[in-house]
Simulated assay, not measured.
Amino acid sequence: MLDTMMVDRAQQLMVATHTIVDGGPPETTQHVIRYAFPLAIDLLAELSGLKLVERWAGWHQQPYTAISQRHVSVHERVN
């Protein structure tokens, strides 16, 4: 498999291309991922009437720190 990744930081996009070469005709698939940082998600949530309740570094409620590579954010509706 040959993988390539293009990152467009201005639009917060990652475009991944996967090509499988196994003796037959190469098969290529592509997918686009838009990423957002936790503070941007919090702002979007707030603009939608939600507030942040908790944030963890994973599904097992590990502490979220500056070096966490992912997050689980829990928001609730503001009355």
Rank of each mutant, 00 (worst) to 15 (best):
L50R: 01
A40C: 08
R34C: 05
E46C: 09
G24E: 08
E27P: 00
E54N: 13
T4P: 01
R70P: 02
Q30G: 04
W59T: 11
T19G: 01
T19S: 11
L39W: 07
D3S: 12
T65V: 09
V21G: 00
G23E: 04
T4N: 08
E27H: 12
G24I: 06
A40V: 12
D22R: 06
M6R: 15
Y64G: 02
D3G: 06
L47C: 14
H18Q: 11
L13Y: 02
D22C: 08
P25K: 15
T4W: 00
Q69A: 09
Y35R: 04
E54M: 03
Y64N: 04
A16M: 14
S68E: 04
P26S: 07
I67L: 13
Y64L: 15
D8F: 12
R34T: 06
I33C: 05
M6Q: 14
A57K: 02
A10L: 09
A36G: 01
L50C: 00
A57E: 05
H31C: 08
A40L: 12
E76P: 08
I20P: 02
A16L: 12
Q11E: 14
V74K: 10
H60F: 11
Q62W: 06
E27D: 10
L39K: 13
H18A: 09
R55S: 03
H71K: 03
F37N: 07
R77G: 04
S48I: 00
V72P: 01
T28N: 07
V72C: 03
F37R: 04
A10K: 06
D22H: 10
V53S: 05
P25W: 03
A66T: 14
H75L: 10
L2C: 02
P63D: 08
L50F: 11
Q69K: 14
Q11N: 13
Q11I: 09
A36Q: 07
R77V: 10
E76V: 08
S73G: 12
Y64K: 03
L39G: 00
N79V: 13
V32E: 15
R34S: 11
W56I: 05
T17K: 11
F37V: 04
T29Y: 13
T29R: 13
A40G: 09
E46Q: 15
E27N: 09
N79Q: 15
T4R: 11
P26L: 13
A36P: 00
A16G: 02
V53R: 10
L50P: 00
G23M: 06
V15E: 14
V21C: 06
H71G: 15
E46T: 15
T19L: 09
E76C: 10
Q11L: 02
P38W: 04
Q69P: 00
A10F: 05
Q30V: 13
Y64T: 10
V7W: 03
H18G: 07
Q61Y: 06
R55F: 00
A45P: 07
D42T: 01
S48W: 01
P26T: 03
E54W: 06
L47M: 14
A16H: 10
I33K: 04
I33F: 08
A57C: 07
H60M: 07
P25A: 12
L43Q: 14
L13C: 05
G24D: 05
H60C: 06
L39N: 14
T29W: 10
Q11G: 07
H60K: 11
I67S: 15
V32T: 15
V74H: 11
H31G: 01
R9Q: 10
L50H: 02
G49K: 05
